[in-house]
C-alpha cells in the first residue's frame, strides 16, 4: 500500500509514458542455438534468424485517472506492449515509465504500482480462489486478515458465491475463473491497471459486472487503466481515449468521438462512423482478422 506522501509524489508524473518502444522476436525454424551449432559443425553457413517486429516505435502517454483503450487485431502487438509495461519483457529500443519510474531500471518500484489481467486466467487450478488470492496478497505485502475480508468482498461483488471460494478453481467455468483473475488484480489496489482483453469469453452479465467494476476502480481508487479489447462497445463505453495499433505501430489515437467523427468525415457519411468502421478504416481490415506477419506473442 502506498503512503499519502508517495501518492502525492506520483501526481507529478503522467501515469504512463511510452517513448519509441520497439520489440522484435527471433523465430527459429530449426532447433535454435543447437541447430546453428550443428550447421556450423557440418560447415554450412549460419542461417539468418527470422525476426518478427511485434512493436515498432510506439509512443503513448496516459494521464492519471484516464482509461486508454488499445484496439488491434490478433497479433498486432497489444499484449507485447502490455508485457513491456508489466516488466515482463525488456524492450529492444525506447523506454516506458510508470509514474516516472523506468520499467527496466526501476522494476520493483513499477511492480508496486501496477497489476494486470490477461485474456487467459492463469492460476494454480488445484488450489481454491481463496488460496490463490492469499498467495497473491502475500506477494503484494497485504496484511492477511485484511486480505481475507477483501477477497470475500471482491469475489462476492463479482458474483462468485461464498461456497465456491474454498473449492478448487479447476471446477469453475472459464468466465468464473476470469472473474477471480480480475479480483486478483484489484486486490493489490494498483494505481495503473493493465487489462488485456479482460472480458473476452465472458457472458453479457459478467461483462457488465466487470465494466462496472473497472469504472468504480477508476472513480473510487483514482486508478489509471490501459485496456486492450476486441469489444468495440466496451471500448466506446469505458475509454476516454483510444489508440489503434496495427502491425506493431500506433496508427490513430483520439477520443472515441474524435475517431468516429474523423472517419465519418473521411468516408463522407452524414453521421459519425461507428467505432468498428473507424477501426476498419485505420487498419484496412476487420478486427478479427490476423496480422499477415502474425506475432504469436500476442496470442495468449
Amino acid at each position: 500500500m502506498l503512503s499519502p506522501e508517495e501518492l502525492a509524489r506520483l501526481n507529478a508524473y503522467p501515469a504512463l509514458e511510452v517513448r519509441h518502444i520497439s520489440k522484435r522476436f527471433a523465430k527459429d525454424d530449426d532447433a535454435g542455438a543447437l541447430g546453428q551449432l550443428w550447421r556450423r559443425a557440418r560447415g554450412l553457413p549460419r542461417r539468418p534468424r527470422r525476426m518478427v517486429h511485434a512493436v515498432q516505435d510506439v509512443s503513448l502517454t496516459i494521464q492519471r485517472r484516464e482509461i486508454l483503450g488499445v484496439l488491434g487485431s490478433n497479433g498486432s502487438g497489444k499484449s507485447t506492449l502490455i508485457r513491456v509495461i508489466s516488466t515482463l519483457l525488456i524492450p529492444d529500443e525506447g523506454e516506458a515509465r510508470v509514474f516516472g519510474h523506468d520499467v527496466v531500471r526501476e522494476e520493483r518500484a513499477v511492480q508496486r504500482l501496477i497489476n494486470r489481467v490477461s485474456v487467459e486466467a492463469a492460476f494454480f487450478r488445484k488450489l481454491s480462489p481463496m488460496e490463490n488470492l492469499l498467495y497473491s496478497a502475500r506477494l503484494y505485502g497485504l496484511p492477511m486478515r485484511q486480505a481475507r475480508t477483501q477477497i470475500q468482498d471482491l469475489l462476492a461483488r463479482l458474483g462468485i458465491k461464498a461456497d465456491r471460494i474454498n473449492r478448487p478453481l479447476e471446477h469453475m467455468s472459464r468466465g468464473m475463473q476470469q472473474k477471480v483473475a480480475i479480483a486478483r488484480a484489484f486486490l493489490s489496489a494498483p494505481i495503473l491497471l493493465l487489462l488485456d482483453e479482460p472480458t473476452t469469453g465472458l457472458d453479457p452479465r459478467s461483462k457488465q459486472d466487470v465494466q462496472t467494476f473497472v469504472r468504480e476502480l477508476r472513480d473510487t481508487h483514482d486508478a489509471t487503466i490501459l485496456l486492450t479489447t476486441h469489444d468495440m462497445d466496451e471500448a466506446d463505453a469505458l475509454c476516454d481515449r483510444i489508440a489503434i495499433i496495427d502491425g506493431g505501430r500506433i496508427v490513430a489515437e483520439d477520443t472515441p468521438e474524435g475517431l468516429k467523427r474523423a472517419v465519418g468525415e473521411r468516408l463522407g457519411l452524414d453521421r459519425p462512423a461507428t467505432l468498428t468502421e473507424a477501426f476498419m478504416a485505420f487498419t484496412g481490415r476487420d478486427w478479427e482478422a490476423d496480422e499477415p506477419e502474425g506475432d504469436d506473442e500476442d496470442d495468449e
Binding site: 508485457r83 508496486r112 494486470r116 490477461s118 492463469a122
Partner: peptide, 18 residues
C-alpha cells in the same frame, strides 16, 4: 515448471518480490 504449466509464471515474476 508448475508455474509454466499453470501459466502463473508471469504473475509471480511481475509481483514486487526480490
Amino acid at each position: 515448471t508448475i508455474e509454466r504449466w499453470e501459466g502463473t509464471i508471469e504473475y509471480t515474476f511481475m509481483a514486487p518480490v526480490s
